[in-house]
Design a protein around this nucleic acid. Structure first.
Lengths: 186, 186
DNA sequence: CCATCCTGCGACACCACTGTCGCATTTAGC
DNA sequence: GCTAAATGCGACAGTGGTGTCGCAGGATGG
């Protein structure tokens, strides 16, 4: 249990496998047991507990890891021309994350008391983006910001969900972008 | 435990209270315990078990009750002029149901093996409606039916969710209708 | 080749939820 | 007022998930 430094080799691989398994399983059923996750990760329950002492630790780690991926993904994007373009880039990045996004957003108040989940931060940034998009003329005045935000997450979540089953990922992303833009357009 | 006839008086009232409590609690957290529901319904856990022998029985009853309400609501609507109007009426009826809709649709595969949940039926009817709407010219050819269906449920769910917190119910319904129509319009 | 790391296995106590009782108390209908 | 229905309370055993051990086998790297 090193304090914080990034693990290497086998340790890092196992850790990732468990995180991936947790995302995949919990995306569909957050009440799934740790045994189910261990099984999916193809490790024993003991090993899982060696990496994450208790359920909460795994939840936190997955939350952190997923948020970090979100950051990484939209850092790699080119400088956006407008607020709406920024929203589009976030959306595409999110859809590409698949299970992680479903885990993050399937239950809006799943992480309510969690110190790593600054709902205010993300929400404030999101509302600010929406307001910018509104002054740019990409969002109609009649659309309440809270609706635009909720719809945005719903579309993101839906695209991630659909791209696990019916549609190829890029198409789902395109549809999500198109749906959101047209929904809120003046 | 009468076979099926509708209960009256006190029995009917208590039964409804439990169903309402279950919808309200499970809409937010389906893993919530029966104690939590009994508490919300202001009955003892014993009483709850007198009406619904086990957890599954309560789930089934709530599922049935919620589906029945859906039927009732859109039976009361006037004859729609078009497939898209029908979709709109369903949408408004759904939003009006609040917690029941959230319970029904928050997890797409919650009722997978349930005999009362004919996912095929509802899904087939929905897809048929979408196809009609498409031939009517309300849905662009480029929109896959599966996306239209997913988006429809997402918008319904989101409006029900939002009308529990930020926006008045009728406004949420209006926004949901508007968002869906514009998203899929040619 | 040896020491160390990583892992699996099985056992254990613990706890929350569940479903079932019996009995006492309150409520409602006649 | 009396009877029957409806409810609350507390106890109970059963169950499944959780977190912790110790030990043994296998992989890894010097």
């Amino acid at each position: 249990m090193t304090t914080e430094q990034t693990e290497r080799g086998a340790r890092a691989r196992t850790r990732q496998a468990v995180l991936d398994a947790a995302a995949s399983v919990w995306a569909r059923d957050f009440s799934a047991s740790l045994s189910a996750i261990a099984e999916r990760a193809e490790v024993s329950r003991s090993t899982l507990h060696r990496y994450f002492t208790d359920r909460q630790a795994l939840v936190d780690a997955l939350l952190l890891d997923s948020l970090a991926r979100l950051e990484t993904l939209d850092d790699g994007a080119s400088a956006p021309a407008s607020a709406m373009d920024t929203l589009e880039q976030y959306l595409r990045a999110g859809v590409a994350m698949g299970d992680r996004v479903i885990f993050l957003f399937s239950d809006p108040n799943r992480f309510d008391g969690n110190p790593h989940w600054s709902a205010e931060d993300g929400d404030d940034e999101m509302r600010a983006l929406m307001d910018s998009a509104r002054t740019e003329g990409s969002i109609a005045p009649g659309i309440p910001t809270s609706w635009a935000v909720s719809l945005y997450y719903a579309v993101l979540y839906t695209a991630a969900e659909v791209s696990n089953q019916d549609l190829p990922r890029h198409l789902a992303a395109d549809l999500a972008v198109q749906s959101f833009r047209r929904s809120v357009a003046p």
